[in-house]
Design a protein around this nucleic acid. Structure first.
Ligand SMILES: [Mn+2]
Ligand SMILES: [Mn+2]
Ligand SMILES: [Zn+2]
Ligand SMILES: [Zn+2]
Lengths: 147, 147
DNA sequence: GCCCGTCTTGCGAATATTCACAAGAGTACA
DNA sequence: TGTACTCTTGTGAATATTCGCAAGACGGGC
């Protein structure tokens, strides 16, 4: 089954309609990979598809919709929000250094166990599909000590 | 020692200058308590202090500065960012339901242990001073099952 | 396939947040 | 205390993001 079909199914399963902008935004995120801003997504779609243009405000709304049904995750942190396709089979999270900006991977298992613990005690279903943990990397910790 | 003096000390310790806007913003957050938007903070300062007004853009910049030295934490999630004073002695985090919007407290211990684990394996110093975990509360999980 | 009711979109306007730059204020040091 | 140097602020403008509303598209039932 194609990516587009899977997206359409997920939308329907969530009681939302399958529309051209939603499919295009989802497709752009899936095939570009990585973290993209709303504007980058919009530009990608224009390039790929010279005819029917999508309004930038629709891209924002669509990202919100896709986030609601957890197909897409938002990553804040910088001055602009970025968005990434969520891979349910292989979820990932980041460690982001506030000093140098570098990113490292965070073992998904740590996040999963943190979530399990909360669900077990609070009955709260945790949605940390793509978690960006801020802090200081080992290098910058050393530097800071000397500063 | 007064709150203002403590803020000034923290600023100096971080190599930043102690200025009127910084002290006022910090003071507003400390004494109002809870989550405030930049605009609410700005309004509070105007009310308290009819003379020297602070520019709204300065409030934004100042909040960024106070976040950098971890006196203040930002909570996203809604359409507008909110800010809260960080109480180092009694840190707290939230569980926020994406369906009904209600908030519950998250045991600080869970966050602390999650952080310890990351620091132990990755050497990364985690800065989760005020963590808002999205998800579904127990009530909404039940409702969703029936929907 | 057509009709209807509702959900979505495009568009433009309204807000929220960030930036650039010259003027003003805080610090270190004499 | 005065000076020099740098960091911050105020202001206005630039961007980013959200909203309101009428027109258009989607999905369900005939
Ligand atoms: Mn990622
Ligand atoms: Mn809080
Ligand atoms: Zn670093
Ligand atoms: Zn709820």
């Amino acid at each position: 089954m194609s990516c587009e079909q899977e997206t359409a199914l997920a939308l329907h399963a969530a009681g939302r309609r399958s529309t051209t902008p939603r499919i295009k935004v989802a497709s752009a995120l899936q095939h570009a990979g990585g973290h993209l801003t709303a504007e980058e997504i919009h530009a990608l779609i224009q390039e790929t598809d010279h005819q029917a243009a999508i309004a930038l405000s629709t891209v924002y709304r669509t990202l919100e919709t896709l986030k609601e049904i957890r197909l897409v995750a938002e990553a804040d942190g910088g001055p602009r929000a970025t968005y990434e396709w969520v891979d349910r089979e292989h979820p990932h999270s980041h460690l982001m250094c506030r000093a140098c900006g570098r990113e490292a991977m965070l073992p998904p298992q740590f996040v999963a166990e943190f979530a399990s613990r909360i669900e077990a005690t609070a009955g709260f279903e945790v949605h940390l599909d793509h978690f960006v943990v801020p802090g200081l990397c080992a290098d910058c910790r050393a530097t800071e000590g000397r500063a």
